[in-house]
Design a protein around this nucleic acid. Sequence first.
RNA 1: GGCACCGUAGCUCAGCUGGUUAGAGCGUAGGACUCAUAAGCCUAAGGUCACUGGUUCAAGCCCAGUCGGUGCUACCA
Length: 499
Amino acid sequence: MAENFYVTTAIPYVNAKPHIGNAMDYMLGDTLARYHKSLGENVFFQVGTDEHGNKIALKAEEAGLEPQAYTDQMVPAFHVMLEALNVQYDAFIRTSNPEHKQVVQLIWQKLQPYIYKGTYEGLYCVGCEAFVTPKEAAANNGVCPIHNQPYQQLSEENYYLRLSEFSIQLKEAIETGTLDIQPIFRRHEILNLIEKGLEDISISRPKKHLSWGVPVPGDDSQVMYVWIDALANYITVLGYPDGENFKTFWPANVQIVGKDILRFHAAIWPAMLIGLGLPLPKQLLVHGFVNVGGTKMSKTIGNVVDPIEIVNSYGVDAFRYFFLRHIPTLDDGDFTWEKFEAAYNGELGNELGNLVQRIAAMITRYQQGAIGKITRAVHDANAYHEAMQQLRLNDAFGEVWNMVRQLNGYLEEVKPWKVAKENDEEHLQEILSYAAGSLTQIADLLAPFLPHTADAIKTCLGGETVQPIEGVLFPKIYQHTIDPRAPKVEPGQTPASQP
RNA sequence: GGCACCGUAGCUCAGCUGGUUAGAGCGUAGGACUCAUAAGCCUAAGGUCACUGGUUCAAGCCCAGUCGGUGCUACCA
């Protein structure tokens, strides 16, 4: 019986176009999904969008649209991104989906024992129609910077979730690894937080302050605030409570989140699940952020990198290569065009692309394309699999790359071009079929990361005869770095400006 | 302030429960080769392992302190 594997990604809020963080989520999820499929497991991979809340309502109003129409218009950009990144998901959940909302209401009802009505008191800006945190209010000296008027002390009725009641169970689950949070330092962070004692959280707003959301069942005056609505997507997408997918795939094996939303997924979400009597997800993969040249990406600085732009210039596998290999899976990473292009030309092109080419060329040239009987190469993939299980995808990728390098080294060692000159056909055939077989196996391990490339390699060298690749894999691109093939520019005698 | 973490070759980082000449990739400088995308391969140079003190037969790895840097410290979706 095949094992089941369920991987989820955080659902982005649709008030802006998808960004590199979403792309990371998608690629990590896709790679894990493909990897587990390759192990013969029965995989389900969810993606989706979070669509409720005031920010959306506001944006919609600005655009002169109904909220639903506005989100309908925003969502396609996420499909475009998924397509561009060659992400094969099984379901795309939208929180504005009627079935989702219906199940969210059911969940609310099931959580009744842990929900109570309370009063939220805080500083409120009438202009913004929103509360601000004391910290924020202090930062603004008690005056709303947008509306230039002082915050008012105000109270409103909210429903609360008794998060505090779950502290001990959550702590236990995280400490014992029932809910395994990776990396370890994130686990420590969250435990630290829980040990201080969790506070109950407000989970609804008066309708007059929040119109675009899921109505609280049995109370027309209240609308659910983000938590229950958004977090529930991970099970509504499976058809909770009675759907077959739910029965098959819950609990999730891996939930992928960014470090900014760790708390919600390590506290509120598991608390909800415990409240519903459901098992917790097994692993939480907490990835970091992608910086640019050591600086946080920001619109004001203007250093935002558009994933689509990279894909269009270098191809999807080049994009996946850099972000899956050179951005640490469990920590922050750094992007620069120079690093990216160095990885593209120096690693994808020179090491892998050229390797495919040289093997294919030799077989074509010396053996008229006949690959011959493949002797199965033995690659020790233990480190690769171990890294995958531990969610260190970048390390697993690195292991594959070691094999690529070894194969280049092997060719130098046995020198098939020399063997060809000595007319030792038998030996030559042995070497080349081994190389082709070895590379084909490398392609299998590469497939979860670089699906197109793996296919191309297998098509080229996986059969009886070489099927030449049209063009080459990863042709050189020098848009941001100096082309070493270009004629040398002499330092030139700068006019003696100095005395 | 509290709790964590980090400071190892020019750059990015590995260094398992302390044990011979501290490693890799990139970059740099040489070299041999020619199947290949001016690719690939080999070799070399380069490190007071932040600093100070301590434990130990022995410390990059343990302890204390100093200096420098980072993350988290709850309703932002």
